[in-house]
Amino acid sequence: MEEEYSGGVEKKFIYINRRVPHGTAYAIESLETVLIGAAFDQDVSMLFIDDGVFQLKKDQNTESIEFKNFSKAYRALEMYDVEKLYVETESLQERGLSADDLLVGVEMIDRARVNELIDQQDVVLSF
């Protein structure tokens, strides 16, 4: 698609990512949907909860499993005007991780506030 989409109603989309990358296709499918959807000038947020926080883990090296290391693409999201990345504090802690382990800057959000974030959205897509 070379033409940019214009007109139409801007909606608020949130992509909720809940799974470890590489074992299943959920993480890459979510990311590709976000990248494709970015052409449509919508208000996009991404939220990483439960095992989804592993998608943003630094230093992923997929060479030996012969998969594409798509984790690098999360750092390109800003160029696609996807600037709102949220990570749930408790999910990180439960997995022995902290914000320093992540490959992009994110906004930390407490579990109790996840609901408020979802309440602001028009469309919720869970992967």
Partner: peptide, 10 residues
């Protein structure tokens, strides 16, 4: 650097 081909506007 990013493992993706950029969209045209990017």
């Amino acid at each position: 650097e990013y493992q993706i081909a950029p969209a045209v506007r990017v």
